[in-house]
Amino acid sequence: MSSLYELTDNYKLIQRLIEEGADAEKFTDTLQAIEDSIDGKAEGYFYVIKNIESDINAMKAEEKRLADRRKAAENKVKRMKEDLTESMIETGKRKVKTPVFTANVQNNPPSVRVIDEGLIPKAFFIEQEPKIDRKGLLNSLKEGDETEGAEIIQTESVRFK
C-alpha cells in the first residue's frame, strides 16, 4: 500500500498527463489506479482513527473516574483531620502519643481571608497579560468589522460520516 505522499505525487502525474495531452485511455487507467489506492488508504485510516479515538475516549473516562476517586479520598482525609482536630480541641487533649504515632494540635501559618475585594488597595493585585477573546474577534470579523492584525482563515480537514 502506498503512502499518502506517494499518492500526492501520483496526482501530480495526472496533472502532467493532462498538460501533456496524454490519450484518454492512459489517463483513465492512471486515474482509476490512484482512486482505488486513495479509497483503500482512506478506509484503512478511517478504521485506525476510529480505534484510536475509542481508546482516547476510554482513557479520558478512566482519567475522570480516577480523578473523582482521588478527590473523594482527599475529601475524606480532610474531613477526618478536621473531625479529629475539633474533637481534640473540645476535649482539651491537644496531644495524643501512641507507640505508632504522635498527633498534636498546632497553629497553622497565618493566612488571609478577603472579605470585600473592592476595599483591597490596587498594590495587592497582580497584573496579568491581556488575553485575546478569539471568539469575539471572529464574530466581529464575520460581521464585517476590519481589525488590523487579524483575518478570518478557512482550513480544511477530513471528516468521517
Rank of each mutant, 00 (worst) to 15 (best):
K78R: 14
L84Q: 06
M59H: 00
K161Y: 12
S37F: 03
P130G: 04
Q15M: 06
I38N: 10
S157E: 08
Q32F: 00
M88A: 03
L7T: 04
A22E: 08
E35L: 10
Y11R: 12
E63K: 09
N139A: 09
I89T: 11
L4E: 00
K122Y: 04
D145H: 04
I132G: 02
G118N: 14
D116V: 08
P121L: 02
V158E: 00
K142Y: 08
I126T: 14
E117D: 11
T91Y: 04
E62H: 14
G149S: 03
K122C: 00
V77E: 04
Q154W: 09
F27N: 01
F101V: 15
I34G: 12
E82T: 02
N75G: 03
Q154L: 10
A42Q: 13
K97V: 15
Q106D: 15
A123L: 06
P121Y: 06
V112D: 08
D23M: 05
K12F: 03
L84E: 05
K60E: 11
V48E: 13
D29M: 05
E148P: 01
S140D: 07
S37T: 04
A58W: 06
A61R: 09
R94G: 04
R79P: 01
K76R: 15
R16N: 14
I89L: 12
V112F: 15
Q15Y: 06
P109F: 13
S87N: 07
Q15R: 12
D145A: 02
E20V: 09
E63Q: 10
T85R: 12
D9W: 08
L84D: 03
T102L: 14
D23Q: 12
S3N: 11
E146Q: 09
F46Y: 14
Y5E: 01
S37K: 12
K71V: 03
T91P: 01
E19I: 02
T147S: 05
K142V: 07
Q106H: 11
E143L: 09
L141G: 01
A33G: 07
V114A: 08
D39N: 14
G44L: 03
L141I: 01
D29L: 09
G21Q: 04
D68W: 03
F125Q: 10
A72M: 12
K26F: 00
P121Q: 02
D133Q: 05
S37V: 05
F124I: 07
E117L: 03
E63H: 07
D36W: 02
K161L: 11
N108V: 09
R113E: 13
L84V: 07
L7Y: 04
E43K: 15
E43D: 13
E19H: 07
A103T: 06
D133L: 06
S2N: 10
T98E: 09
R69T: 15
A33K: 13
G40R: 08
Y11T: 13
A72L: 14
S140P: 00
A72I: 07
L17H: 02
F27G: 01
N107I: 06
K64I: 14
Q106R: 15
E127C: 04
R94Y: 15
K41E: 13
N107S: 15
D36P: 01
T28P: 01
S111L: 05
V96P: 04
L17D: 02
S2Q: 12
A103G: 02
E129D: 14
L119F: 05
A67D: 08
K41M: 08
M80I: 11
I56T: 00
K135A: 11
D29V: 11
A67H: 07
F27K: 06
K97E: 15
K41V: 00
I126Y: 07
L138Q: 01
F125R: 14
L31E: 03
